[in-house]
Design a protein around this nucleic acid. Structure first.
Lengths: 221, 221, 221, 221
DNA sequence: GATGAATGAGACTTCATTCAT
DNA sequence: GATGAATGAAGTCTCATTCAT
């Protein structure tokens, strides 16, 4: 295969066809906006591709080449839209965190606050759902231990979790102090990372047990 | 190529010194052991180098080249002693887990069981100590999520932690059920990974708070 | 690394000479074609180098390094223009087959059809000419026995030979049935491979004898 | 896996056990012979392994490592029993040629001479049988084009074929002249190499057709 | 005699990034 | 603005062969 067959399919047509397709009104104004739109779209597509690859193959799978191919974009575009690989990863991490937090919030909003059992079940589902995505998220999270830029985002993740925990506890009538919120988030982190990595058969039971003890701690004086 | 100069420095001396060290009885029998010893030593040196690099630069820093250079050994030696990079990493992971568990055990054995405050302080120290090493350990731990070979070792890590937790609790008079042990280990995992990655200023206070809540849970009915 | 000096010698001149050659009309349009041309040229040079090496040293001599060095191109260029070594070899095989068939056709067209002796002499020359090139061709031909991609090309070679044989026979007044054409091609294959490999002193006589018997078979009822 | 696990299984026991197992008669004479026997056996085993690998994976698959592993022998033994890879291949070629010729002879001896159709069928079977082995044989045959040592053996192969052809023709009442024998052998070579490489569906029919024409040539004046 | 240890050379391939156009 | 071309650096791994024991 030629080195860049896939990329050509995606890009060359756009370039060559557009001048001819332009509406005869001759609005020059619309052209730049078009371009800008395309640029934004491309950026998003690249980011999306990076996230996908991260989830599928982990940190090392996110290469310029792979991202470009996945996004259907010429190789050099990755360097054009992102200053370097690290920047791309940082944005991907941000996106991943945002999505994850939103997904969790949405999941919990759909669950009634009253029966604690329903909450437990919801958490089990959250913690067990889509192992690949979590792997990617946690891989970047850990990478943040070596990279100050990522660390900022890692903290945003933890803070977001705190916020959600706080809201859930409040909704259930618990007037949780910050340290209690932190405690719960920490427990969840532990559960998460263990669950993702070890992939044990009795994962569900383990989660439930830990949650039971956690709630017991919250009720303690 | 480039490392050829360095490796000679490391190996030739051993070879040259030996004749002088040989006992005058002239037992030829001891000779084969020498070679074998040197080989074992080399293997260990390579492993050590891999562990160091892992701690310093993370997963991707453990390359054949880097390991060989660090160990003062020709490049091809890495492939001679370890069938592939993955095998090297797996052994490094095992070593890291063993050491870490041993270090924690040693640390805790030196702490009196009675005053819970002393225990808390010990944990703070364990969790805060040698951030680099932990980063390496947890990076491999997470990598186990994608690699079944590593997963086995990851579980050994968690199981080892369970064992230590169980012993500590028992020593303190807690008759902890397995699920409680698991709970504590999970909390510690959460603390660990958060602490390593986020590197917050108030880490010590956070750890103490979480431990307080954890102990409260254990005392709860 | 080492070839970096050589490749500059090969490429920089082209770049530097061009500005002088550019037509004074100053058409920017021509520029992109320049680059593309250079790329095509490079590809051809690489292929040419591969063919040469194949002829000289056989299958195993066609390495990325050797090809790059021979073509006066950086090592990575071989991977840029050909996805893998197999692809390079496949293209080299194709090229070799095409050239060989063309050369044979040209050779035979220059020979009068009438005196059968002239034809025999032409065949002797074809079969004896440029032993190295044939060695490369037949080595790849045989390799096709293990590689389906090459097999396609191997058949093209045989089919091309059939076609030529058919044309020659027709030109000489023989109305050869397909099975007869195949027979002749097979005989030629046998002659070829034997002649190339064994390199006997009486090669010429052997070829003539076999051809005599072959023609006898064609005249048989 | 450790670099030499397989080899140890095969060799260490032999070395260590023998002194204890030696019969008490104390015949020192038998020991050297034992050793020699073992050496011969090993040599054969290595050769056998080389032949197998050649058939399975072709020329490039015959590496010291692969041969040693296949033979269940320490890596260095390959260099100990054969001066170099080329020597090993040369012997393998010889062995392959001998076996092949013997197999063909055996096959043809079992076929009645009279009905020409039976002979044709036998040839079809010979030419179609065990494609892998033939590939290895012909690969070495072609390699002989570049290696004078192998060329000697290649000629032995052709001469052996001549001999067989001569015998078969004679048995069938044909009083074939040498040039006719050579013609037939050449045709067979062509058939062989084409058949092995191209692996076409109508191979059987093609072979039969070519044989028909070949026999026609022999009957011609 | 036999072999584990060792290694320089080199295999193929990928990568991030730059640059001229 | 976008991108094909380009490449130095480095990646993992295999190989034939030597040598000390």
């Amino acid at each position: 295969m030629e080195p860049s067959a896939a990329e050509d399919d995606a890009t060359v047509p756009e370039q060559d066809h557009r001048p001819a397709e332009r509406p005869p009104t001759g609005h020059r104004r619309t052209e730049p906006r078009r371009r800008q739109e395309r640029a934004i779209l491309r950026r998003e597509r690249l980011l999306e591709a990076a996230v996908e690859l991260l989830e599928e193959g982990g940190f090392t799978a996110v290469t310029h080449r792979a991202v470009a191919r996945r996004a259907g974009v010429p190789l050099a575009a990755t360097s054009y839209y992102f200053t370097c690989r690290a920047a791309l990863l940082a944005e991907a991490f941000t996106l991943l965190v945002e999505r994850e937090l939103a997904a969790i919030r949405a999941h919990l909003e759909a669950v009634p606050a009253d029966p604690p059992d329903a909450l437990a079940e919801a958490l089990v589902q959250i913690l067990n759902h889509d192992r690949q995505r979590r792997l990617g998220l946690w891989e970047l999270y850990l990478q943040a231990g070596r990279d100050p830029d990522l660390q900022r985002i890692a903290r945003a993740w933890t803070d977001g979790c705190d916020e959600i925990v706080s809201w859930v506890l409040h909704r259930s009538g618990h007037h949780a102090r910050p340290s209690q919120v932190r405690f719960v988030t920490t427990v969840l982190s532990g559960l998460w990372v263990e669950g993702i990595v070890e992939d044990r058969l009795d994962a569900r039971r383990r989660i439930r047990e830990v949650l039971t003890h956690t709630l017991a701690a919250l009720r303690a004086p």
